[in-house]
């Protein structure tokens, strides 16, 4: 499962991409990923261009490629799944080192691996160059529903608190020599989750009271102006347009 802490996703160390408005980065990332997914699988060169764009942006943003590589570990379960496809695919089969593999299955596996990797790299780059509160502002400036963004804000704000709480309960279990082996041993984990829910709920109530006593009226005011320099939109539109052009050219040259 996606482990870890949300503040660790952002890479401290300031690069030029950190200053680009979050709504621009968010929109450009979504459009870029859509363009990647729409690229025909036969156009190997097009995936090369997409990857080169991401690498160029990472270098410009001063995000080390090793950082992206480490975060790509989250993708491994998907890749393992893709490995099965050549074995269960239909149609023509080829012999590869003694194994009979489906040609269409190999294409499908390549398709998933290439697109999932590029998509994950794009969102890692987004999270690495955008502070969490800014990313949330990006959502609301892109006109995501107010309540949806508000729920998301509270979730990411308290995620580390709730996960920390879970961690402390795990330590408590382990220090009492808890080692789950069979499904019957899961009862202790279930009551852990139950306690975690009750504590989260009660924390939610306290948070709301604390907010009311500080004058909360339903929306969190924005401190900075939401105006975006047109150069930012130009960068975002440029990246999205380039990726879309590569995808379209891939279909033409097929």
């Amino acid at each position: 499962m996606s482990g870890g802490h949300i503040h660790a996703l952002y890479r401290h160390g300031h690069g030029p991409l950190d200053d680009v408005a979050p709504q621009v980065k968010l929109a450009a990332t979504l459009l870029f990923v859509l363009a990647v997914v729409a690229t025909p699988r036969e156009a190997f060169w097009a995936f090369g261009v997409h990857a080169a764009m991401l690498v160029a942006i990472a270098i410009w943003a001063r995000v080390p490629l090793g950082f992206i590589g480490k975060r790509l570990i989250i993708e491994i379960p998907f890749l393992l799944f893709a490995v099965f496809l050549p074995f269960v695919g239909r149609g023509e089969h080829v012999e590869v080192i003694g194994l009979s593999l489906s040609v269409s299955g190999l294409w499908a596996a390549w398709n998933v691996i290439a697109k999932a990797t590029l998509g994950a790299m794009a969102s890692i780059l987004l999270a690495a160059t955008t502070q969490v509160p800014d990313l949330l502002k990006g959502f609301s400036r892109l006109r995501f529903p107010r309540v949806f963004v508000a729920i998301m804000s509270f979730m990411v704000r308290y995620l580390d608190v709730v996960i920390g709480e879970l961690g402390r309960m795990r330590v408590a279990l382990q220090s009492r020599a808890y080692k789950p082996r069979r499904i019957g041993h899961a009862r202790a984990l279930a009551s852990t989750a139950g306690v975690l829910f009750v504590r989260s709920y009660e924390r939610g109530e306290r948070v709301h009271l604390a907010m009311l006593s500080r004058g909360f009226t339903g929306t969190v005011p924005e401190m900075a102006s939401a105006a975006v320099p047109s150069a930012h939109w130009a960068i975002g539109a440029g990246v999205a347009a380039l990726a879309a052009a590569v995808a379209a050219l891939g279909w033409v040259l097929r």
Partner: peptide
């Protein structure tokens, strides 16, 4: 809203 957010954090942690 805070409760929903905490519930979301709980679901994430429970996963």
């Amino acid at each position: 809203i805070p409760l929903a957010g905490l519930l979301a954090a709980f679901v994430f942690a429970a996963q």
